[in-house]
Design a binder for these strands. Structure first.
Lengths: 226, 226
DNA sequence: GTCTATAGAGTGATAGAC
DNA sequence: GTCTATCACTCTATAGAC
């Protein structure tokens, strides 16, 4: 790799880094091309030597995120069989989704803003939600086929769960100084409890093993939103 | 009221109507002032005789929506005591939230897009979520004070429920032709079941009266998101 | 009150020197 | 590959005639 290519790679990395920073600070839609180049310390024209548009830059960031997520998932064995009515397994899934959202907040913010505004007539919001919860839907379908009762079709239930996780996470993680002072464990516990037992609360007679505060290590298992 | 004022009122109404139509069709952020005036059949300059900006127009639409919602709420007696762990009451709340969202979709879309993009650093998304779920939080707090166990603090649980309802509703109601063919009753039932019992499902031994399909009339009680 | 016409600011994207 | 300079376009907002 020649010197020119090295510098080019540096510039591209600087642009990506600046974009991530700005997307998190002021959102994807509010960020202009010139904001990115200025923050990266480059000239405006240099942007177009690397990306054709802001959308293409976002796609590159998404690819990076997916690569990172896939690599992390590959590290840990993903259990073949999932039972989302088991507290530890459900919590692991929610915890992973939370961590992915948190660690890739700039890209998550950008994707969410893009999905909610771009092509509103094309139903991109709904389709994105379905795609992002497809793994979750598969798990719920397996549950249903075993005869477990669900409150609705796996597709709809998965979408509802995904909507809660993404919107709640988006709001809380972008709250900055206005965010309540609660630990991530508390948040994941709350979401797990709500999705597992609802407002009714755990059944007293089943014992409900591991109810209160499962091991913190659970938060490490990485399985996207599914 | 003179002729000029009548025509002015007509123009203002036409602008509002056009704005609602366009907000639903192409979103708030994508809608330009000129789009609104063109659709309303007026000149661009006329817009500023009625509203100082697009944001002010949105505030006027929000005021209209609140007036309508308040009037509807006043019609029906709001039970003093709420027990959200009662299926009928929880379903009534969710059904009302769904109907308000559906009937005021243009304004809801605009508010959501505005909250998610404007002042991202100021945590407007989180604060809006808290405000919109304040009544719900109060109900949950009452439950907690009676000794009922909740999966987390009333504030956080209310926010999570509100996030699910608003995001799921937003995605589904803007899905257009891509929306799954399910009735509103099915959707409200699904959300009710998920929030009441979670993925575990209803407790078999309690009997769970009125489990499957509560009366359609329940959908009429109007109580915002709370 | 409503219109036409236009000023003014901001942004995306490109050309050409280095 | 990166820079400077600039064009072309879009949109907001205003001025002034009617």
């Amino acid at each position: 790799m020649g010197v020119r290519q090295i510098k080019a790679a540096e510039t591209e990395a600087a642009l990506k880094s600046a974009a991530r920073q700005l997307f998190a600070e002021q959102g994807y839609l509010n960020t202009k091309i010139t904001d990115i180049t200025t923050t990266a310390g480059r000239a405006t024209g240099s942007f177009y030597d690397h990306f054709a548009s802001k959308e293409e830059l976002l796609q590159a960031l998404v690819a990076d995120m997916n690569a990172h997520a896939d690599a992390t998932i590959a590290e840990e064995a993903h259990p073949e069989e999932h039972d989302l009515t088991d507290r530890a397994q459900l919590r692991a899934h929610i915890g992973t989704a939370w961590i992915v959202l948190r660690d890739h907040l700039p890209v998550a913010v950008a994707l969410m803003q893009s999905a909610m505004t771009d092509n509103l007539a094309a139903g991109r919001g709904w389709r994105s939600l379905l795609e992002d919860t497809d793994l979750l839907r598969a798990h719920l379908e397996a549950l249903a086929e075993k005869g477990h009762p669900l409150p609705g079709s796996p597709e709809l239930v998965a979408a509802a769960m995904g909507a809660m996780l993404s919107m709640f996470g988006y709001a809380l993680l972008t709250a900055g100084e206005f965010a309540p002072r609660v630990s991530e464990e508390e948040i994941v516990d709350m979401l797990t409890g709500l999705l597992l037992y609802g407002l009714t609360g755990p059944r007293p007679e089943t014992g409900d093993e591991g109810d209160d505060a499962p091991a913190e290590a659970e938060l490490k298992e990485p399985v996207a939103i599914g």
